[in-house]
Design a protein around this nucleic acid. Sequence first.
DNA 1: ATGGCTGTATTATGGCACTGATGCACCCTA
DNA 2: TAGGGTGCATCAGTGCCATAATACAGCCAT
Lengths: 113, 113
Amino acid sequence: MNPNANRPVYLKLRDQIAAAIIDGVYPEGAMLPSVRALAAEQGANPLTVAKAYQQFQNDGLVEVQRGVGMYVVRGAAERLRAAEREAFLRQEWPEIRSRMQRLGLDPAELALT
Amino acid sequence: MNPNANRPVYLKLRDQIAAAIIDGVYPEGAMLPSVRALAAEQGANPLTVAKAYQQFQNDGLVEVQRGVGMYVVRGAAERLRAAEREAFLRQEWPEIRSRMQRLGLDPAELALT
DNA sequence: ATGGCTGTATTATGGCACTGATGCACCCTA
DNA sequence: TAGGGTGCATCAGTGCCATAATACAGCCAT
């Protein structure tokens, strides 16, 4: 099946949040949705959301003001995008590429879709 | 991290075997390695290997001769390739494509690597 | 027929990741 | 100063995964 289907919730949330930061849905300096709010919206547990937020704190992409909320730091979007791009090219793309080759698919053609 | 890294062993084995069938490492009519042999080679448990083989039996891609071994049926490689291709295009490619777009990557360029 | 190879069923166990419920510490505003 | 909003720590439950030890059923060459 799709490897992304049976993925832990907190990782899916993490990807979703990362995409939102990169796309500017949560601009730099803005406050992220509270763990409870996002949990209610996504139908998940607050702790699961907190776990998804955790990595962004460790990487210094968001700043925690205890009792207040979590804020996107300056330059977070670009730093995040660079890191994701590097990780994608180094870890995922080689496998995807060889896999497509095995299946007789051409990335250049599919790109035009 | 890489979604394929923390995947269950039996699924990684399954993908590895599927690739071998498609690539003709196990040609049609040939016998697959015994569960014990592959388990020893891969450092896994025979039952884990059996679980990896399971799906191929259900899909009718391999034929079990009890007491003898498991054999790749005729047309298995092409059928497997078609199924994998369809699944890839429908389930995985859309996500990959949008993700690359977000990261500012062009599939057409990367294809030339 | 016997030994050695196949796959398979059974049961049990340990580990680990994910999820969940509760309560606490902290900060701002009214 | 009271209330409601934050994040966070602790503990517990659950289910999947992997392993293990046996035992069984079938086939084949010697």
